[in-house]
Simulated scan of single mutants.
Amino acid sequence: MDKLRALKYFIKVADTLSFTEAGRAFDVPASSISRRIAELENSVGAVLLHRTTRSVSLTEMGETYLAQVRSGMAQLAAAEELLKDQASRPSGTLRISCTPSYGRMKLLPVLQDFSDIYPDVLLDVDLSDELQDLGGDKYDIALRAGSEPENRVVARRLDPNIFILAASTTYLATRGTPRTVEDLKGHSALMYRGSKSVLKWLGFDGKNWITPRIVPTFISNDVASLTAMACKHRGMVLLPEWSLREYLQRGELVTVDLSQPVGISRTEVGIYMLYLQSRYLIPKIRLAVEFIYQRLAQRNDDGSLK
Rank of each mutant, 00 (worst) to 15 (best):
M1S: 07
D2C: 06
R5P: 03
I11Q: 15
K12A: 14
T16F: 13
T20H: 11
G23F: 07
R24L: 15
A25E: 11
V28P: 04
S34G: 06
I37G: 00
R51C: 06
T64Q: 09
A67W: 13
Q68T: 06
R70S: 11
L76I: 05
L76H: 05
P90A: 00
I96A: 02
S101D: 13
Y102R: 09
M105Q: 07
V110Y: 06
F114Q: 02
S115N: 10
D116G: 14
L122T: 04
L123A: 04
D126L: 08
Q132I: 12
D137C: 07
Y139I: 11
D140E: 03
I141N: 00
A142S: 10
A142C: 04
L143W: 02
R144S: 03
R144C: 11
P149V: 10
L158M: 05
L165S: 00
A166R: 04
S168Q: 01
T169H: 15
T169V: 12
T170V: 13
T170G: 07
R175G: 02
V181I: 14
D183P: 00
H187A: 04
S188E: 13
Y192Q: 00
R193Y: 09
S197M: 03
S197K: 01
L202A: 03
G203L: 13
P212Y: 05
N221A: 01
N221H: 04
L226W: 11
A230P: 00
V237E: 08
V237F: 15
L238I: 14
P240R: 10
E241F: 14
W242M: 05
W242G: 01
L244P: 05
Y247T: 15
E252I: 10
L253E: 00
V254C: 07
V256K: 09
L258N: 07
P261F: 10
V262F: 05
V262H: 08
V262C: 02
T267G: 07
T267V: 07
E268P: 01
V269E: 03
L274F: 01
L276D: 13
S278F: 06
R279K: 15
R279T: 13
Y280T: 04
R286E: 11
A288N: 03
Y293V: 14
D302L: 10
D302M: 10
K306C: 08
K306S: 02
